[in-house]
Every structure is written in C-alpha cells, then in structure tokens.
Design a protein around this nucleic acid. Sequence first.
RNA 1: CGGGGUGUGGCGCAGUUGGUUAGCGCGCAGCGUUUGGGACGCUGAGGCCGGAGGUUCGAGUCCUCUCACCCCGACCA
Length: 569
Amino acid sequence: MRVSELFGKTQREIPAEADIVSHQLLLRAGMINQVSAGVYSYLPLAWRVLKKIENIIRDEMNKAGGQELTLPVLQPLELWQETGRDKAFGKGLFTLLDRRERNLALGPTHEEVITQLVSHHVQSYRDLPKLLYQIQVKFRDEPRPRGGLIRVREFTMKDLYSFDMDEAGLDKSYQKMLHAYKNIYDRCGLPSMLVEADSGAIGGKESHEFMLLTESGENEIIYCPTGDYAANAERAESVKEKIDGGEPLPLEEVATPGMTSIEDVSGFLGISRSHTLKAVFYIADGEFVFVVIRGDLDVNDIKLQNALHCYELRLATEEEVIETGLVPGFASPVRISGIRIVADDSVPATSNLVSGANKPDTHIKNTNYSRDFVADIVADITLVEAGDSCPKCGNKLESTRGIEAGHVFKLGTFQSEKNGAYYVDENGESHPIVMGCYGIGLGRLMAAAIEQNHDDKGIIWPLPIAPYQVYLCPLYREDTNVSEIVEKLYSELENEGIEVLFDDRKESPGVKFNDADLLGIPIRVTVSPRTLEKDSVEIKLRSEKDSALVPLAEAVTRIKKTIEGASTS
RNA sequence: CGGGGUGUGGCGCAGUUGGUUAGCGCGCAGCGUUUGGGACGCUGAGGCCGGAGGUUCGAGUCCUCUCACCCCGACCA
C-alpha cells in the first residue's frame, strides 16, 4: 500500500477527547474515528490489525476443536426473559420494538441464542462434546463508555461456548481454552497473566480472566510473587489475621462521645481496630442490609453482592440509615430486628468486639457473635489489599493493574436448564448440558496492545499484529535514482508476500520518520541518496534504537529473515 | 443516576466590562525554493461560534432551557 493512497491521515496534535495513550495514538494514527460515545469507525489500518488478531484467535480456536458459526445480533427479548438475564443486564441491554411492537434485544452476548440452537441439534450424548464459536459484533449500553476502545458499546468479540455431558467434560474443555488463550496472547506478542475472576451474580463457579498488565488497566490484580496465586481484586482472597479476643465477657456499655469512626473509637478506647466491629449499610435491590466486618477490614462490594445474590447494590445514605431507626456512627447488630444482617467470616472468628450501642455517643464492649447476635448470611466479604497474606502460601500479596483481555467461565447447567438444552445418556436418562463460555474482545485487545507497546513517538506494534510489516521510506532527491530503486524494491517485497507500507509521498524526512514511528510499523527500510552511495538500504526496527546498513542486493532476504525471526521467537 | 469539565473551520486553541469584516497555530489547495527527524516564502479555500428561546439598538460574549462529548464515582462477563 502506498501512503499516498492510504485512507486515513496522521495527526500531529493530541485530540482533546483522549485521555489514555492507546486512545490518543489510535486517533493520531488515523486508525479510529468516534461516531458516538463508545461507538467507533475503524479505518483500514485498524481493520488490518483487528483482522490479524481475529485470524490468530480463529486459528487457535480451530486447533482446539472449535467450530465457527454465526449468530444473530437481533434477538427476541423473550429468550432473555427465559433465563432472567434481561434483569441481570438491566439497562445494559439495548432493546427495541419492531413494527409489530415486539420486543427485541441487540445481543450483548450469545449464550441464550446458542443454547437454544444447540437444544435443536443435540439430543444424545453421542452429539457431545461440542465447541462452537463466533466472532461478531455485540452491543452493550455501558453506563459509562471510556478509554477509547477499552470500554465501548458496540464491539467485536470472539465467544466460544462449550457443551459437555458432565463436569469432567467441562473441565477438559475449560483446560483446552485456557491453553488456547495463552497461545493467542503469546502469538500476538503480548505477555498475559491468568487470574481468578469473579463470575458475576449468575455466573457459574469457576472463572478466570486473562490480564494484559499495564498501569492504565481498569482492573486491580492481587497476586503472590511466588506465582502460586493471582486474582482480580474483585474476588481475591487472603488468609485473615487471627485475632484473639479471649473468653467471651459480659456486654458493657461505654460512653464514646462523638466517636463515630473505627479510627476514633479504637483510638479513644486504646484498642486496635481489629478488636472493633465495623458496621456498613447497603441497599440491595431496594432492601436495607446491615453488614458487619471486623474493624481492620473493608467490605468488597462484589463479594457482598454475590453473597446476597442481588442485582443492584449500593451504599445506603445517612438518611436511609436514620429512617431504619439506626444511629449512624453508633449502630449495632445487637438487639435489632427486621433487618437482614450479613457478617464477614472474620466476625464469628473474633470475640469481645467493640460495637455501637444503637444510641448516640455510646458503644458496647464484648460483643460476641452467636451469643449477642446472629447474621442471616456469613461469608467472606473482605476486600483484599497488597500486603495481605496469600491464601496458598501465606506470603505477602502484591498488587498491579491490567486490562481484561479475555474472560472464561464455567457456566454449568444454569443456561441449558433455562433454555431447554438437554441430552439423553447411555441409559436413556435426560440431563442438562454442561456449559462453559470463553470471550475475547478484539478492539480492547488492540488497545491493550498499544498500552503495552508504545513510546513517546507512537505505537510499537508487535510484528504478528502490525498493520504492515515494513515501512518503506524513500528520501527523494531529484537528481538521483532513489525513485527507480525503491519502486523495484517495493514490488520485490510485495512479491515475497511481505506487507509493505510504501511512503511514496514527497514529504521531508522528518515527516516520514515521525509518521513511521507514530504508526509503529515494526521494520523501517530507508532508501536515500546517502544509503545508495554505499549501494545499501537502512533497516531499523521500531522497537530498537539502532539501525543497520544492508547491501541493496541482500535487502529482501534480510527483511524476510527479520520477519521470520520475529515470528518464531 | 450523582459530581466536575468542554462545545468557536479537519485538529489544537484564543476571543477583554456585550460593539462593526471572528482570530492564531497545525493541516488543506496553488506556485516557487527545500530534503536524514514534523523545512521556508508567497497566494488562497474553509466558520448557521453545539441547538432553541430570550434580554438588547447590537450577542461567540448576558439569561433560560436543551443536546452532545470527556473525566471521577455508581455501574459493568
């Protein structure tokens, strides 16, 4: 492709809209164009990158035994009502009415449709297992699209769904996908980290995410430096410090004027925070919930939401707390009724805690779980932080950030039961099909690749996903034969099947070099009167500082070698 | 949905207490001189100042409403 003919222009200045690097560079490189919040057009350079990523993914899916198919974007809302996931997605689901006033949804994902499809074509254990996938556009009305391509409302995603007879089969499919995913990121040239993930309110039991580590990542990752544990902070667990409160003592009121925070109370009474009981109030699907946790710990909202099995969860306002009859800052789970109580598992494990007294300026000492109050739910709802202890080995956990570039779930039979996908086993008995699902967002992967690979000049594409492999950069001068030689080189490279972006513009060297750097093409080949004096061309890798002069006659083979070397290493 | 911010040629911005033909840089077009890290000169094209309503002799500027986009939070496979 000749740059003079390429659709899309580079921009020197950083668009004011863009905050994160990948967004800025995608815009400056003329790769994407925003149409609406979270909706983009993809120009030829971006499209080529997406196609390369797509082909790598497709290849790995096929190798793992996946069969590609295509599914509708337009889906009847009833299908979503069958599983109740219309509620789980809530406003995130784009819906519309057709001319007959029937409700339709734009697919945010395709479990419902594919499960229904499978129910029509799988009746027997002989039809299983199956791995089916599609690479298609999906729609989600995100509350807040952000970060350019990181979080959008219309996006292309590869989703594979596995259908197995039983858990053992699912385990196998799941392992296959973990392996395939690792290969995908490796082949794209992007280091990834596998972490345990939250599977959401309706998800199955097990779930993992593939993270591309970068500081601009939306997700906090908690991991053990020994490598035996890594999890999204949303679900990370830790070994909680054991606090010995001694034998249960009688309840005792104590005046604590104005001491409304854990900090205040522990300081005032001269005890550590871990000897206090922290009360936090939430509204879960409209219901007021009283949450208690040991004073030195914080509540993880996601874990709490999972424990409550609710769709919507938020902190209660002070007014709501007062309306409920509680005293903010001095609330206690002791002797209250009609309010659901959730306790972190640290609470039953610790004795003689200081809690509120449900009256102003007063706390009670020696609150003991079971004797003084019980919770409706006891669960681990602790927010884990760097410095806590690894659940596997006890070492200090660390924290980093990453972009979620893939998410795999063991769905189990929830979906197949609701959408009626059953099979008959050898004994003629009917069972729901055991499912898994495995997604990768292509645009996000592209953006994450840039977040991981750039410098102050521009993008540095890993060769396997670069829009072009070679940037052929002649520096013309009228009285020389650069033009003739570079045209010949261009067609030779193309004949070898090498993807060349040929900067045939009559621009100054500075402009060309800067554009080459901005676009991030891995191999830059400069031909100029200066190199031709030595009968050579200059080859420079975008990822490296130095360049090398290579004899013109060897240029093509040298470039081929560089490409092969990069793709096998 | 709550909080904050921004809307002025393709991009980045300026525009005073309201005052005449709305500016600058980049980019774009033409001509000429240039060519190893975003060259220079000359000439030129390109604007319902986000939209609607209002105040006023007069509105990019003031008032009201509205829309869009961005950021933080809520939310989110």
